[in-house]
Amino acid sequence: MMQLTATSRHLLLERLANIFALTGGFIMLMLAIVTVASIIGRSTIGQSIVGDYEITEMGLGMAIFLFLPKCYQQKGHVVVDLFTAHCKPSTIRTLGIISDLVFTAVSFTFAYQMTLSGFEAKEYLEQSMLLALPTWWTFTVGVICMLLCGFCGLNRLYTTLRGGNHE
């Protein structure tokens, strides 16, 4: 029973991270299309897409946040392996727990602080120059993604500590 819930929790997190990453990917594709449309527009009919710079900035910000959980799940973050190449597996496991702890703590701290900053951004009407796109949109996406990162970290900690080897 316990095993089953662990697996389904794991699957749920993985599915979420996949959806997030793909959404970010499609945002990137859309940004490329907007930019190219803007280039074609201004070199043919002399009209670019208003605020293409702002759209790119905001879209990129959201996309990068959406990419973060998948990167963690795939152990995509670079680690220096120079000094620990010959360590025992148990040492590596302990070091892994430490870095997962740090990652989880950092993710939740980011999520919490970005929530505060996001509310502030909303209150103070932070927005882009021409299109008045509100900055708090990016904060919202960022907080959700950081939370997912934190839960992925918790999940890995939990499975490692229980002796499982879900990856």
């Binding site: 990137m28 490329a32 900035e57 905001m58 990129l60 946040f65 980011f110 602080q113 900053s117 960022g142």
Partner: peptide, 26 residues
């Protein structure tokens, strides 16, 4: 520091100049 942590990810990730990195990667 807490304020930095609240604002830096959004401002660092929403960088027009850096948009070339994921696009060229793709």
């Amino acid at each position: 520091l807490l304020n930095y942590l609240g604002t830096a990810p959004v401002s660092k990730f929403s960088s027009y100049d850096l948009s070339v990195v994921p696009l060229f990667l793709l």
